[in-house]
Design a protein around this nucleic acid. Structure first.
Length: 710
DNA sequence: CATTATGTCTGA
DNA sequence: TTCAGACAT
C-alpha cells in the first residue's frame, strides 16, 4: 500500500523520465534498419508468435498493442518487424535491456538525486540544480534550450496549442511565481539531460516535470514519444479533477476498483469530497491519508538516491503442458535459473562491489488430485552462499522444503517418481539484501599491512570503492580488479566445510529441518558464518558477462568535444532556423530524422552529421553509427574520470567512512584475527538497518485545502 | 495452458 | 525475519 508521507512545502523540482518503448529502441540501436519501422519485441516465438512486450510507435499507429500475440500483431500490421528477446539457458534473458537501462541511468544521474524506478524509468530530484540555475543565471535563462522551449506546459496550452513562443515566455517570465521559475529551470535541465541521453545512447525518452513524484509520473507519458511535460503549480487542480482514478499510480488495481465501486469515485476530483477520516476508516490510516493527499496533488515521497536494483531474480513459467512434474525436471530448470542468477551476482560484485545476503525461491504449482489446489506454493529463503553450485544446491533444498509444505502430509510414498499429481507452473530464484562493500582505509588495513598479510595484488588498491567511483552496472571494460580474496584457500573443500556452509536461517519446522539435514550435513551452520564469509567463494571467477560499455563522461568536457566536432549542440542558444517544427514532431526526434536527411543532398549541410560523416557512405544509418562510434571512442577513455555533481551511491555507503580497503583483507585469515576486528568486519558485511526517518508533524501546506482553498 | 520476467513495497 | 500479496512495466 502506498504510504502517506508528511510533507514539507513543495517547491521541489521532480522529474520522471520514461524511455520510449525501450526494448524496441534497444533492438533498433542494435539493428538500425529497424528504425522508423513498425517494430515489436517479442518473447518466445513458438506459441502464437510469442508475447509482445514492447511496441514501437509506428506499430502502435497500426493498432498493434502490447499484450497482443505475435500472430495477432502480424495480422493487424503485416509489415511489422518482430524481434525476439535473447534466449539463454532456455529462458528469456533481459540482460541487454538491463545494461541499456544502466547506460541511461548513468547519464540521468548527473544533475541530481536519481532513483532507478524500473528498468526504463527514473525519478530525479533536480531541486538543487534548479535553485542553482535560478541563482546563478537570473536572466540568463534567455539562453533557453531549444528542447526546453518545446516543453508542454499544462495550463499554458489552451487547446493544446501552446506556441513555443508562449512556452519560452513562460520559461523566462520574470514575474513568475518562484515555483514556476524553478520548474522552468527543471524543464531546461531535463531537456539537456534528454538530449545527452540521446547523444550518448541514441535512445529517446519522455519526461514529466513537477513539484512531486506523483505529478511528474502522471504527465511523463502525456506527450510521447520524445517530449516533456511540465505541471505548473497553478494547473494541478485542473489536471487532477478530471483525471481517471484508475490511471493513478497505485490505483490501477484493487484499491482503485474499490474506490470506484465502494465510494463511487471515478476521477481524482471525486475524491476531494471525502474527509480524511472517512478515507482512513475505509482504507486504513496510511492509505487513507495518502489518498486524501493525492486528491490535492500532494505527495511527499522522496526521490531515493538509488541507481542499482535492490534484488536480482531469474524466473521462468511453464504454462500448462509444459509444467514440471518431477524433481529432476525441477532441478534441471532450477540449475539454469541459478546459473543466470549467479552470473548476475558475480557481475554485481565485480562492477558494483555489492554482496547479496538472501536467496529466495518462489514457485507456483498446481495439485491435480487435490481439493485445495488453491493453496499457494510457499516461498522459501535462506542465507545466500556465492557460487553457482552452492546456489543450485540451496535452491533445490528450498524447493523441496516448499514442496513438502505445499503437498502437506498426504503425499504418496512413491514420491520422487514422475507424476505424483503435482506440477510446477513457475519457478524463480532471487537474491536480495544486497549491500555495498564499504570503501576507504582504516586501521585494519594497517593491521594487515603491518602483519604482512596483504593479499591484494600490489598496486591494485582501488579508488573504485570511493565516492568518486561510479559503480554502475554495465562497465564491461573494467579491469578485473577490486575484490581480491584469498579464494583458493576458501574454496578448498576443507575450508568450505569449516566456515562456509550455512543454511541456518531456514524458516522450517523442526521435521522439515531434519529432512534437510539428511541431505546436507552442514545444515546446522550458523547465521553469523554466513554473514561473514560465505560470499567469498568463487567470486574471483572472471565473469564473461558485461560486453556493454558504460558512457560516463565528464559532462562539460564531452560537450566541448562534441561541439568542437559539431556533432550536436548540447546547450543551444536561441535558434531561429529550425522553427518550423510542430509540437507533435519534437526536434529531439530530429536526431534521427536529420540522419535520414543526411542521405538527401539538399539538407546535408543542415545536419550536424554532415560534418562527421565525410560523405563516405550513402547509408544514413551507417553515417549515424559512425558518428556514434566516434563519439564513443572519444569519450570512452575518460569514463573513469571523476564526475562532479553525481549521486551515485547508496546512502548506506555514503554514511560510512572507512579507512581501510576491504579488498586488501585476506578473508581466509579473518578467523584468526582478534575478535574485535572480526566483529567489525562482520558489521560491514551485514545488511545495515535502515534508519526509519519519518518526518512527523511537519507542516503540510496543501494545494487545495478545503478551508483555505488554493 | 499463456502478459513473461522482474522488480518494489507494505502488512501480518 | 520471513512470507504473502498488491502493484507496476
Amino acid at each position: 500500500m502506498p504510504v502517506a508521507r508528511p510533507e514539507s512545502s513543495d517547491s521541489r523540482v521532480i522529474a520522471h523520465v520514461d524511455m520510449d518503448c525501450f526494448y524496441v529502441q534497444v533492438e533498433q540501436r542494435k539493428q538500425p534498419h529497424l528504425r522508423g519501422q513498425p517494430t515489436a519485441v517479442v518473447q518466445y516465438n513458438s506459441w502464437k508468435g510469442g508475447a509482445l512486450i514492447a511496441v514501437s510507435y509506428e506499430a502502435r499507429k497500426h493498432g498493434v498493442k502490447r499484450s497482443m500475440r505475435g500472430d495477432e500483431a502480424k495480422h493487424v500490421c503485416p509489415q511489422i518487424q518482430l524481434v525476439q528477446v535473447p534466449v539463454n539457458r532456455g529462458k528469456a534473458d533481459l540482460t541487454v535491456y538491463r545494461n541499456a537501462g544502466s547506460e541511461v541511468v548513468s547519464i540521468l544521474a548527473r544533475k541530481g538525486r536519481c532513483e532507478r524506478a524500473s528498468i526504463d524509468e527514473v525519478y530525479l530530484d533536480l531541486t538543487e540544480a534548479a535553485e542553482l540555475m535560478l541563482a546563478e543565471t537570473p536572466e540568463s535563462l534567455e539562453a533557453i534550450h531549444e528542447e526546453a522551449v518545446k516543453s508542454h506546459v499544462l495550463g499554458l496550452d489552451v487547446d493544446g496549442v501552446d506556441s513555443r513562443e508562449n512556452v519560452k515566455k513562460w520559461l523566462i517570465r520574470s514575474d513568475a511565481d518562484r515555483r514556476d521559475k524553478l520548474l522552468a529551470c527543471g524543464a531546461v535541465l531535463v531537456a539537456e539531460l534528454r538530449l545527452q541521453v540521446l547523444q550518448e545512447t541514441r535512445f529517446t525518452c519522455s519526461a514529466g516535470i513537477a513539484h512531486n513524484k506523483m505529478l511528474a509520473k502522471l504527465v511523463s507519458g502525456m506527450n510521447k514519444p520524445a517530449q516533456q511535460t511540465v505541471v505548473p503549480f497553478s494547473s494541478v487542480k485542473k489536471l487532477l479533477e478530471g483525471f481517471p482514478i484508475k490511471k493513478m499510480k497505485q490505483l490501477g488495481g484493487k484499491l482503485g476498483t474499490s474506490l470506484q465501486t465502494d465510494l463511487g469515485v471515478e476521477t481524482v476530483g471525486d475524491l476531494l469530497q471525502f474527509p480524511e477520516v472517512k478515507l482512513q476508516e475505509c482504507y486504513g490510516m496510511n492509505t487513507g491519508t495518502w489518498l486524501w493527499n493525492i486528491a490535492r496533488g500532494i505527495n511527499g515521497e522522496e526521490v531515493e538516491g538509488r541507481l542499482l536494483p535492490k534484488s536480482h531474480g531469474a524466473g521462468k513459467t511453464f504454462p500448462g503442458p509444459a509444467a514440471l512434474r518431477s524433481i529432476p525436471a525441477v532441478e534441471k530448470w532450477l540449475n539454469e535459473l541459478c546459473d543466470e542468477l549467479n552470473e548476475r551476482l558475480q557481475s554485481d560484485l565485480e562492477k558494483n562491489k555489492r554482496i547479496a545476503h538472501t536467496l529466495t525461491l518462489h514457485a507456483s504449482a498446481y495439485k491435480k488430485t487435490d481439493t485445495d489446489s488453491h493453496k499457494k506454493f510457499p516461498s522459501k529463503s535462506c542465507p545466500l552462499r556465492y557460487g553457482t553450485s552452492k546456489i543450485q544446491e540451496d535452491a533445490l533444498l528450498l524447493f523441496q522444503a516448499g514442496l513438502r509444505e505445499y503437498l502437506g502430509s498426504y503425499q504418496p510414498k512413491t514420491s520422487g517418481g514422475p507424476h505424483d499429481g503435482w506440477g510446477i507452473i513457475g519457478l524463480s530464484v532471487s537474491a536480495s539484501k544486497i549491500v555495498a562493500i564499504p570503501s576507504g582505509t582504516r586501521s585494519i588495513s594497517n593491521y594487515f599491512h603491518s602483519r604482512g598479510q596483504i593479499c591484494s595484488s600490489a598496486g591494485e588498491s582501488n579508488d573504485r570503492f570511493s565516492k568518486t567511483a561510479a559503480p554502475l552496472s554495465p562497465s564491461g571494460s573494467e579491469s578485473n580488479s577490486g575484490v581480491h580474496f584469498a579464494v583458493s584457500e576458501i574454496e578448498s573443500p576443507h575450508k568450505e566445510e569449516k566456515s562456509v556452509h550455512a543454511l541456518a536461517s531456514f524458516d522450517l519446522k523442526e521435521n522439515e529441518t531434519q529432512v534437510c539435514k539428511d541431505k546436507d550435513p552442514s545444515f546446522s551452520s550458523t547465521m553469523s558464518q554466513h554473514d561473514g564469509f560465505a560470499f567469498a567463494q568463487e567470486i574471483v571467477t572472471p565473469s564473461s558477462s558485461g560486453t556493454q560499455s558504460c558512457f560516463t563522461v565528464n559532462q562539460t568536457e564531452s560537450q566541448k568535444e562534441l561541439s568542437g566536432e559539431n556533432f550536436l549542440h548540447v546547450r543551444l542558444k536561441e535558434k531561429k532556423t529550425s522553427s518550423s517544427k510542430e509540437k507533435g514532431t519534437p526536434s529531439i526526434l530530429n536526431f534521427f530524422q536529420s540522419r535520414t536527411s543526411c542521405a538527401s543532398p539538399k539538407q546535408q549541410h543542415a545536419s550536424p552529421f554532415a560534418v562527421a560523416k565525410a560523405s563516405s557512405s550513402s547509408d544514413a544509418e551507417s553515417i549515424v553509427n559512425s558518428c556514434f562510434e566516434a563519439f564513443k571512442q572519444k569519450n570512452l577513455p575518460t569514463k573513469n574520470r571523476t564526475r562532479t555533481g553525481t549521486f551515485n551511491f547508496d546512502q548506506d555507503e555514503q554514511r560510512r567512512s572507512w579507512s581501510y580497503k576491504i579488498d586488501e583483507i585476506d578473508h581466509a585469515t579473518l578467523n584468526e584475527l582478534p575478535l574485535e576486528i572480526q566483529e567489525e568486519v562482520n558489521v560491514w558485511l551485514r545488511p545495515q538497518k535502515r534508519a526509519n526517518i519519518l518526518k512527523k508533524g511537519s507542516s503540510i501546506p496543501h494545494y487545495f485545502l478545503p478551508t483555505k482553498d488554493k
